[in-house]
Amino acid sequence: MNSSIADRIEKDGVILGVPVGYSMWPMLRDRRDQIVVEKPTRPLKKGDVVLFLRADGQYVLHRIRRREGSKYIIRGDNCDYDERVSADSIVGVLRGFYRGDRYVDCGKSAGYRMYSALWDTTRLPRAAYRRVKGAAYGVYRRVFKKK
């Protein structure tokens, strides 16, 4: 049970895990939902959510935005920055996830496909909203919470 995630995917072909963090919010909730990640068996494409291994040994589950040569440009749904990831760092692709008790199949769910398409196209307004919200909260703190 102590083998690495990459080893488990290689051995079993598919694993069940729990997402940690908020980078894929609102699709995946920190330590609440469960993800089903499988070994990639087809060419990866825009919109796929992939599990990759960073140089520091951290596993990250983020979404492919596009391909540039031998690299994938990848970003978390709740992130404002891209990462350039080499194909050999990718150890798995999200097959589906349990949100509460409901299973969402990434390949079959129409709702998921719509979310995946909309999330990238609405990226700029969402980033602007987060900045405005952050600035407004900063003003609120200075005005109402400063002693």
Binding site: D12, G13, V14, I15, L16, G17, V18, V20, R31, R32, Q34, V36, Y98, Y103
Partner: peptide, 18 residues
């Protein structure tokens, strides 16, 4: 929680226990 993966039941710890 117990989920079915690849046709077989699998358990993972959730919440703070994960």
């Amino acid at each position: 929680v117990i989920r079915e993966v690849g046709g077989a039941p699998v358990a993972v710890a959730v919440g703070a226990d994960s």
